[in-house]
Design a protein around this nucleic acid. Structure first.
Lengths: 224, 224
DNA sequence: CAAGTATTGGACATAATTGTCTAGTCTTCG
DNA sequence: CGAAGACTAGACAATTATGTCCAATACTTG
């Protein structure tokens, strides 16, 4: 029993312009994502969502078989945005390791590419659902493997590449929600230290300088 | 309207030895804590708890005014165990900074003193409750301040002491639940690097050696 | 042991939530 | 325009939760 997505919304030109715009499956997913991020998965309830969308609660069941069906779709969506984005960034060819690290870090900086609150929310969710936990762990492994591969492409031996990948990845997890308010600049400045702090070596000044330049570029928006 | 704790439980010698042992306010709190840790605060529900305790659901209301009353008590309990434990450990006089750091780290290692899963669960909870968030932030400030004071007692200037305190504290948050399975040894080995990685200096070999020795002692159980 | 207090069980009321079913409306397309 | 399909509203049923009340039972103390 498939639930087709409304055709008239696929082509935006055919959609009504004002008023009476019908909700779509994606609209339900967006609201669910918002609530997941702000209040946790337990609060993703059908009645409040329908209220927010201004439609009847029972309309929900046209788009989704059940609440669980929605949650599955939500998890899929997370995997196909956040994880795919980070893996893609880690795989982007770069001229230096510093530039490559900056690409990865790009995800943390740009909410358009990667949603940190979404990641936090899914991690919460995983604490209560074994299936979500499995998806999360697979995603984390994929992310770290991608970053590790990046370091290996730039000449680091396997073990050191893995260590650096873990540090770079867990760096973002070390902050909680409150700290996300902290200026990004502060977090970016720490990256070179994270990368070298564990190896017993100093970060070369030219890498630090390069990194700062790249970060500057990220914030002004003119980076790949 | 005060809710006294059953007297016959205060003196263990007066408690029935087998069977028919009445549940106490603390029993309810323990079950609530277990559920909070494993399933999140949303799952702390009265009916399932009474089932697990083998008593009627309505008995709950003798010990607690309402569900919210239980949650408040639970949060109090967390603050008076975890936060107090860490602050006390940070305040313990030590002969060297390495030993002092080891005392703090003791909390992370010994579940009897400090429950990491409890901390994680409360952090989750704080995402959904402003009042819990306020308590959590106050606790985190108190913890970091205590660690900072420790470094200052050992001669570090204010700013560097704060930086080191943050690193030492956030180190534990960088791991998620899955990583708690990881051998403690691995985490302990990273401490000296965390402490020096950010400052651009190397950890002196004798400090690393000292730290390893203290960690060894922690695991064999013969430390203060 | 008896009286009084502490503690529990079960009935009752209320509300929130998920899910089903059906009649009806709106949209698209031949 | 008119029929088929896409979508929605509202009634209904079932489940699960919170909280109140009161009678019954267990425990303590004189």
């Amino acid at each position: 029993m498939t639930q087709p997505i409304p055709l008239h919304r696929d082509d935006p030109s055919k959609a009504p312009l004002v008023g009476n715009i019908k909700v779509t499956r994606q609209d339900w997913l967006n609201v669910a994502k918002d609530i997941l991020i702000s209040d946790g998965i337990e609060q993703v309830k059908i009645l409040p969502m329908s209220d927010r969308l201004g439609v009847s609660r029972s309309s929900f069941y046209w788009y989704f078989k059940s609440r669980q069906d929605l949650l599955d779709a939500l998890l899929d969506h997370w995997q196909q945005t956040n994880t795919a984005a980070l893996v893609a960034k880690a795989g982007t060819p770069a001229q230096s390791v510093t530039q490559a690290v900056t690409f990865v870090f790009h995800c943390v900086v740009n909410p358009q590419i990667f949603s940190i609150p979404f990641d936090f929310a899914v991690r919460d969710w995983a604490r209560r659902s074994a299936t979500v936990r499995a998806v999360l762990h697979a995603s984390e492994d994929a992310r770290i493997a991608a970053i590790q591969a990046m370091f290996q492409r730039h000449g680091y031996p396997e073990i050191e590449a893995l260590t650096r990948a873990r540090i770079l990845y867990y760096m973002q997890n070390g902050y909680n929600d409150a700290d996300l308010q902290e200026p990004l600049e502060h977090r970016m400045k720490m990256v070179p230290h994270y990368l070298y702090g564990f190896t017993g070596r100093h970060a070369p000044q030219h890498e630090i300088d390069d990194f700062r330049a790249y970060c500057q570029a990220i914030q002004t928006g003119d980076t790949p």
